[in-house]
Amino acid sequence: MQTLDPQVETRIEAAAFRRLLRHLDEHKEVQNIELMILADFCRNCLAKWMMAAAQEEGVTMDYDEARERIYGLPYDQWKDLHQQPATPEQLAAFEARQAAKKAKGEA
């Protein structure tokens, strides 16, 4: 793997992150619970990671602001427009994933 200038690497990573956000925005039908079941992260996780990264840089960013940056609009609006209630099957799959993580000592 080639060594990149740190500023170039940061710009590449930032571009990839922006592309991930666009991809998620283009696929609002993919529900957060599905992301949690399949990938163990969701849009809210991204917001928490963004908030933590901001704090590491000495930037004050609360959870609502971070979620608005991830969702592209206030979370309550996004939720009203795009979030569907979790199905019993989704809830069962999520609980099974959480139980498996706990059994592995990951939770």
Score class of each variant (00 low, 15 high):
residue 83 Q to C: 00
residue 62 D to T: 10
residue 73 L to K: 14
residue 24 L to D: 02
residue 79 K to I: 02
residue 8 V to P: 11
residue 48 K to I: 01
residue 35 L to R: 04
residue 21 L to Y: 13
residue 99 A to V: 09
residue 87 T to Y: 14
residue 72 G to V: 08
residue 98 Q to M: 13
residue 72 G to M: 14
residue 1 M to P: 08
residue 48 K to P: 05
residue 47 A to N: 09
residue 19 R to M: 15
residue 64 D to E: 05
residue 94 F to T: 06
residue 36 M to E: 04
residue 11 R to V: 05
residue 11 R to H: 13
residue 70 I to Q: 04
residue 45 C to R: 15
residue 77 Q to I: 09
residue 54 A to V: 15
residue 5 D to Y: 11
residue 29 E to V: 05
residue 5 D to I: 12
residue 107 A to G: 07
residue 90 Q to T: 03
residue 90 Q to C: 04
residue 7 Q to P: 12
residue 9 E to I: 12
residue 54 A to K: 11
residue 40 D to P: 02
residue 19 R to W: 10
residue 78 W to P: 12
residue 41 F to D: 00
residue 37 I to E: 00
residue 101 K to T: 10
residue 51 M to I: 05
residue 10 T to E: 06
residue 81 L to P: 11
residue 2 Q to D: 07
residue 66 A to G: 13
residue 83 Q to D: 04
residue 74 P to V: 12
residue 49 W to F: 07
residue 44 N to Q: 06
residue 35 L to V: 10
residue 26 E to Y: 05
residue 33 I to Q: 02
residue 72 G to Y: 10
residue 12 I to S: 00
residue 26 E to M: 02
residue 44 N to G: 01
residue 7 Q to Y: 14
residue 51 M to Y: 09
residue 88 P to K: 10
residue 61 M to F: 12
residue 94 F to E: 01
residue 17 F to C: 02
residue 38 L to S: 05
residue 43 R to K: 08
residue 85 P to S: 05
residue 74 P to E: 00
residue 22 R to K: 13
